[in-house]
Simulated assay, not measured.
Amino acid sequence: MRIVIAALAVLALASPAAAQNAGQVGRAVSGSSCPGCNLFQADFNGLERSGLDFSRARLRQADLSLTILNGARFSNADLRDIEAYGGVFASASFAGADLTNASLVGTHLRGANFAGATLTGANLSGADLGGARGLTQTQLDRACGDATTALPAGLHIPPC
């Protein structure tokens, strides 16, 4: 009996992460809000909508490149390893979101809320964070950028 329990425990640990929910992904990429959804590795490339709600959603490894999602809510969302090259997220909320290792190269984040967000390993090269709210030096010290990264006054970012 112990061997069976041990084998089941090993299988549970070796199982892949929960895959995306195809129905939820379809709804979200068509432009609907999807709070709490499993959008793992979803392709949102080029989506243009305002005010969508992705709070608490799992968007890990999603492609948000060239999206325009002004005013979107990503509060407490899993945005680890996303690709958001050239995206526009003006006044979006990333409060409490996990943006670990996110690629935010060339993104427009003017006026976005980053209160409590994790930016460890995030690449903000060329990003416009002018007027960003809740952004701290401690968060930026864990991220990287370049000379073209626009930040609120008094903040700086280490080079990538």
Rank of each mutant, 00 (worst) to 15 (best):
N21Q: 12
A17K: 06
S50G: 10
Q41W: 03
A77V: 08
V4L: 15
Q24F: 14
L8F: 10
A6T: 14
L64V: 06
Q61I: 03
Q24W: 11
D98M: 02
F89V: 11
L13N: 04
G71S: 13
N101A: 11
A62W: 04
R60N: 08
D43M: 04
A17E: 12
S50M: 07
R49F: 10
S55F: 07
R58E: 05
V105S: 00
L99R: 01
L66W: 06
A90F: 08
R73E: 13
N70A: 15
G46A: 09
A95D: 04
F40P: 05
E83Y: 07
S93A: 09
S75P: 00
N76T: 06
C34D: 01
V105M: 00
N70P: 02
L59C: 10
D78K: 06
A17V: 14
G36H: 01
R110V: 11
R27V: 13
A57T: 05
T67R: 09
P16L: 02
S30E: 12
A90G: 02
S103N: 10
A92D: 01
I68M: 09
F54S: 10
N21H: 07
T107H: 00
V10K: 06
V105R: 00
S30G: 08
H108G: 10
A9H: 05
L79N: 01
F40D: 01
Q41P: 01
A14C: 15
F74G: 09
C37R: 00
D81I: 02
G26I: 13
R80H: 07
Q24R: 11
Y85C: 05
F74I: 10
R80W: 08
S33G: 07
F54C: 12
S15V: 07
Q61N: 14
V10M: 09
D43H: 11
T107P: 03
L104Y: 01
S65I: 10
S65L: 12
A92Q: 03
V10Q: 03
C34K: 00
L64T: 07
R110K: 10
R73A: 14
N38E: 08
A42Q: 06
F44D: 02
A90C: 02
I5F: 13
A22D: 14
R110D: 05
I82W: 07
P16G: 07
A62S: 15
A62Y: 02
N21R: 04
L109M: 10
G26M: 04
F89M: 13
V105F: 05
F94S: 06
L13G: 15
G111N: 06
P16Y: 00
L13W: 11
G106D: 04
R58W: 01
V88R: 14
F54L: 13
V29H: 01
G87W: 04
L52G: 11
A97N: 04
R49P: 13
L47W: 00
A17P: 02
I82S: 04
